[in-house]
Design a binder for these strands. Structure first.
Lengths: 327, 327
DNA sequence: GAGGATGATGTTACCGCTCACAGTACACGG
DNA sequence: CCGTGTACTGTGAGCGGTAACATCATCCTC
């Protein structure tokens, strides 16, 4: 493995000149430069980024921390982040926390020790984020914000989405509606719910709410209990796509049809499913753009921006499909 | 940012003793050890992994390189890889290549310079892989293999899947079948096709083939041309899920119904879609297990295994659903 | 009680690169 | 001809750890 001194020796210069050739080419005479470049090529020299990081104090590494990259929303966010990261010369690391504080804490500690240049987070743990901020590691929050934490963030206007979705449901003739799933204390869940509640309020109606978690199992469980209690509503709004899928699975299991027996809508698109069969009415969230925006904000910070924290709010769109077509 | 010498000073010992306390605790007397640990806690010291990497020659960093992490197959692979990576103390980096050789080459060069401990690849470029191997960076191939490259690999028995899928189609009464999409030269595409061709052969039938790429657009385009030429078959086998989705989109656009007018099946599950509505017949590939297995193999290599390259073959399952229910 | 093993800790150098500073050579103005 | 730029290149130190070796009590053993 050729190192910089090998190149230097072969080119008959000092290591510093090789370094300059790579990092500040115009501070090296053309003749020397080409000699050095040739030596680099001959030896197949690739600079050691680890060593460079040690002196420069930066790693060009950024991390994305989400609950579960398999959640299509985060998959798409990831793609947005990676595209922009790559363009700016960063390498992206990813970690799943599965909503477990401890996993999150550990992971963030690893990121500190690795001296990542910045972190994009979608989590709930305020303490963990402080760990990063105390170490002056730029942080951008995406999708969720954390009370008491000052940081750039990219959120999605799910409140608006909730209102509009409710409007749509009322216009379609649904009256008895239940909101299911979602963790209390999660900012985006709260905004979704608030939007729905306000939508109901504006229509002079009440909304039934049954929180849970944000995974498929929660959707199944909630629907099972609704059925068991004989409280199946006319329409269901699921806190996210996984919950909706869970609800759907349980309904199918019990012979309930959508939309014939129950209307169903949720927050978050399910990309391929919606293409395969545009069935489910959703509040479409611009996940890719959120990822891009988050990475751009992070880049600004890493470059040293000291502007006050920015909150970027991305608009949503209610996509009406068959699942809320009242029979 | 506290460094090891700060801790040492505070604990009244040398830096080396602090290092030992962390890495080989039993070589330090209990009294000193607890003094050091306290100093660490007081200062909130977190070791600098960059510096450690420089001396130890390892980074505990591994990378996953795929064409597109948004492809549900790779998303799931990623999750499998990350779970195992985290368990073994590695941090995972991900990169998308979009099937572009140049992007792939660049990314792998970055990985070399970052001195990652290992790489899991699903790509086609032999030269790029050699770059890694020359540098003695362990490589595991997943899903695709590359002719002429000796490396551990995890593949999926899509040949078998192809045969079984064809059997199912024939049993269902389909006769005129077209295989669409997929890049020539891609090992897994070739195996899929080979399986289908052999399945056709065994049934004494012919299979029409129209290759393309592995993305949605390719599915749309291929279907469009089939329609325009008036060669819409009785059933379509798509090389992967994206192609199938593209085909579906185009068929819907043209008023063709599945399965009433055309049967449709593909390789690769579309997780949430299949739960939302179990519609599409697929050859289910164990993506999560593939990711796990790949990471385990990589871990072995990183630990120094010099066993000959292993090829792990994972079985598939044909999941029959409505899209191939002949009217 | 001398010689040697053992355990705890310290010293030094180095991983590969770059920063700050230090030459060196040549050009130009007065 | 000297002083002062300007352009290029080199030297030495250090980033924050750790390997290898050195040191120094302490404790046996005979």
């Amino acid at each position: 493995m050729a190192k910089i001194r090998d190149v230097a020796q072969r080119a008959g210069v000092s290591a510093m000149t090789v370094s300059r050739t790579l990092n500040q080419p115009d501070r090296v005479s053309p003749a020397t430069r080409s000699r050095v470049l040739e030596a680099i090529k001959d030896l197949g020299y690739i600079p050691n980024a680890v060593a460079r990081s040690l002196t420069q104090g930066r790693t060009d590494l950024i991390a994305l921390v989400v609950s579960d990259i398999q959640n299509p929303f985060f998959t798409t966010v990831t793609r947005g982040v990676e595209d922009v990261a790559q363009r700016h010369g960063y390498t992206l690391m990813v970690g799943n926390t599965d909503e477990q504080m401890e996993k999150e804490r550990q992971y963030l500690e690893v990121l500190v020790s690795r001296h990542v240049d910045g972190v994009i987070l979608s989590t709930t743990g305020a303490d963990q984020v402080r760990l990063l901020q105390e170490r002056h590691i730029p942080v951008v929050l995406v999708d969720r914000v954390i009370p008491g934490i000052q940081a750039d963030s990219v959120v999605i206007d799910v409140y608006d989405g909730g209102r509009k979705l409710m409007q749509h449901l009322y216009e379609s003739g649904y009256r008895d509606i239940t909101f299911i799933g979602g963790t209390p204390g999660n900012s985006t869940v709260e905004a979704r719910l608030a939007g729905c509640l306000d939508g109901a309020h504006e229509a002079g109606r009440s909304l039934s709410v049954r929180l849970g978690r944000l995974d498929r199992a929660s959707g199944e469980a909630t629907l099972a209990s609704l059925c068991d209690e004989g409280r199946v509503p006319e329409a269901i709004v699921a806190a996210n796509n996984l919950v909706a899928v869970g609800a759907m699975v349980e309904m199918r299991r019990r012979g309930l049809r959508v939309p014939e027996d129950v209307g169903l809508a949720c927050f978050g698109e399910i990309e391929l499913a919606s293409l395969l069969d545009p069935f489910l009415t959703v509040v479409r969230e611009p996940a890719y753009d959120a990822g891009r925006a988050a990475m751009e904000l992070l880049h600004q910070r890493i470059r040293g921006s000291t502007a006050p924290p920015v909150q970027r709010v991305l608009p949503v769109e209610v996509v009406v499909r068959r699942s809320t077509r009242r029979p």
